[in-house]
Design a protein around this nucleic acid. Structure first.
Length: 259
DNA sequence: ATGACAATCAGAGATTGA
């Protein structure tokens, strides 16, 4: 089973590029972030025509996550638990029913800039809630994964110019520490289980020719519970997508699981 | 030091992103 994550930076602007990639990459499941659309405005037909079931958790103008799945989806839930006041659409999860059930969580973790400020406070609080949900997933016998735009650069090697990010919410020690604390519950960073070293990125800024200079960062991640990591076969970043017409600033990352 | 680039909503330019 091939499961992908892709921050598309707006479904209206990315419909063509997204469909082209779906047709080529043919993931069984795609977790989308930053759809920047309400549920009613999401062009589900585009994906249903390609054989996908569609579940969205949208919001006007900003954020918004979705799941496309060729396999049936069950027990869909929307919103990260433990803050009923939180109206930002950044979390969706569902059970994919194949020959074995898998719990999949799609997330768009807050950016957090500028630091300090309420946006950084919100990021850290959101990560505390993510930790709580991650604990539950680890304890559940069903294999699970959490994938999406984490807005976290885990290590220096995950940025082309780490010095440029030292005061940024994506790379501050407190941000990275919270990410590590979640990973250390027992999750596997799927990409790092398969690839080592520098030069692997999932985001390049639109500005200052970042793509042409390969000035990227790795901030889109798959975290797998132990029983999910046991069946990991491959993990790749489709970096070449960034060089196409009208690209998102992120590219897809995907895993293959023996499920 | 600053802005660069793109998307959204709206219908200009502010806001957001990373």
């Amino acid at each position: 089973m091939k499961i992908a994550s892709f921050n598309i930076n707006g479904i209206k602007a990315r419909a063509t590029a997204l469909c082209d990639w779906l047709d080529e990459a043919a993931p069984d499941v795609a977790l989308l972030q930053e759809i920047k659309s309400v549920d009613e405005g999401f062009p589900s037909e585009l994906f249903e025509d390609r054989g996908y079931n569609v579940a969205t958790h949208g919001q006007k103008s900003f954020n918004g996550v979705a799941i496309l799945s060729k396999l049936p989806l069950e027990d869909i839930t929307r919103g990260l638990p433990r803050d009923p006041e939180d109206e930002q659409a950044r979390w969706i999860e569902a059970t994919v029913v194949g020959k074995q059930a898998l719990r999949i969580c799609g997330l768009y973790l807050p950016n957090g800039n500028p630091v300090p400020g309420p946006k950084y406070d919100y990021k850290l609080a959101w990560m505390d809630r993510l930790y709580r949900r991650a604990q539950e997933l680890i304890q559940d016998p069903m294999p699970a994964l959490m994938a999406g735009d984490y807005n976290i650069i885990p290590q220096s090697e995950d940025a082309a110019r780490p010095d440029a990010w030292t005061k940024d919410a994506l790379f501050l020690p407190q941000s990275r520490e919270k990410f590590r604390t979640i990973v250390n519950l027992g999750f596997t960073d799927a990409f790092r289980a398969r690839h080592h070293g520098a030069g692997h990125y999932s985001f390049w800024d639109y500005q200052a020719g970042a793509w042409n200079r390969n000035d990227g960062i790795r901030i889109d991640h798959f975290l797998l519970t132990p029983s999910c990591a046991d069946v990991l076969q491959d993990c790749q970043i489709d970096h070449q997508i960034r060089g196409r017409e009208k690209p998102s600033d992120h590219v897809p990352i995907w895993v293959k699981l023996d499920l």
